[in-house]
Design a protein around this nucleic acid. Structure first.
Lengths: 208, 208
DNA sequence: AACGAGGGTGAGCAAGCGCTTAGAGATCGG
DNA sequence: CCGATCTCTAAGCGCTTGCTCACCCTCGTT
């Protein structure tokens, strides 16, 4: 991770790798607009307006509206995969790694639910080549989770009759958080992450 | 349920209550188009074309494109709520009722995943009044599932630390089936339903 | 045969879309 | 002080959008 992606405090600065600043402002505006109204219902004028610029300014930094979506989707999927791989490669038992993966993956989908909504639900708006690139990243996310489940079964920690099916269900459960999560709601992202980690451990048959 | 909604054989005929036939053809065409490309990316010309009609024909049967979406959403949510209530009001233990609810709810989301996709993911494209009406139906679906979970906890069948959170997770898991389910895939709707019923019973702490 | 009613069409309007272009202003090395 | 470079804007092009309107065709009824 480059220095530009972190604040002096060390916490993540989203979209830190997007430069120059005007390009980042446009991208952040696009994320908000896409999340609120969907890709197709969002106009380039709306994006530029939110960023405090004229419509034409968008095309200095991005060739098309679709390229904007692709950049958002690519960065988001990279981050999601990074989270899952960090958990899968971490130490501890399979149960600990699975709980960690679900907890942090869900927390990301709740905290950054505007971004996640675009990343997870606007896939079909991408052109064919861009979509293929993103689909491959999702395949890798699936593989990371499946690996943890398989290792848990092999170690005798989990009892899972259907490993691929359970993997799909776990990822689906986490991803859908970005659809319903509301910042005004009763739960913090961390609380939802803890709840979901517990539910997923139950799904793989871990006794508490 | 009226006779128009069932074939002589007795199985469900979707959109059977929509008359006249031209209006139903337009509605079926709209479901397909909305599911494939999303509400905003679908043109009225596309819908009319799929139904084998001129663009103007749409406006004989529906006042606006949004009214079409509302009709689809309303009928779909009614059906979903009917499924959940039938399971909640059925006989047997809470575990049996919960398994039944999840099994049939998931089967519907898989079998009719084009419809379900529109129903579940195009909510924001509705106007304010129509959206409010649909949101109320969703609240009732949530209540039906929560009731089963609460009864299971009261009967000592389930061990659930967080009933509202678990209810949201169960519904979220089922709904998201319509996003990833593919007719060409390896699993039948019934198999996914069975898998998910098992996973949900584990989530509420039922031992097998 | 004449009629009214209602489903359907071809043509097209006003508005809004993604995107382009000509050029203004700001910045900077030489 | 100049020209080159880069960012951004005002204006607008060509096209598509949701929707309308004047008219036609097909009926069951009288």
């Amino acid at each position: 991770m480059s220095a530009a992606e972190e604040t002096p405090g060390g916490e993540d600065m989203p979209w830190g790798e997007v430069t120059p600043e005007a390009a980042r402002r446009l991208l952040v505006a696009a994320v908000e607009a896409f999340a609120e109204r969907g890709y197709h219902a969002t106009t380039t004028r709306d994006i530029a307006g939110r960023a405090g610029m004229s419509p034409a300014a968008l095309y200095i930094h991005y060739k098309t509206k679709e390229e904007l979506l692709h950049r958002i989707s690519r960065i988001g999927h990279d981050k999601a995969l990074e989270i899952l791989r960090a958990a899968a490669d971490g130490g501890g038992t399979a149960a600990e790694r699975l709980a960690d993966a679900v907890h942090s993956f869900v927390r990301w989908h709740a905290e950054r639910h505007t971004t996640a909504r675009v990343v997870q639900y606007e896939l079909d708006a991408l052109g064919p080549e861009h979509r293929a690139e993103i689909v491959e990243l999702r395949r890798q996310s699936d593989a990371a989770v499946r690996r943890i489940v398989e290792e848990g079964v092999a170690a005798g920690e989990f009892v899972v009759p259907d490993v691929p099916g359970t993997t799909v269900a776990v990822l689906s459960l986490c991803i859908d958080v970005s659809r319903w999560f509301n910042t005004q709601g009763r739960r913090t992202p961390d609380e939802v992450g803890a709840l979901y980690a517990d539910l997923v451990l139950r799904m793989v048959g871990v006794q508490k």
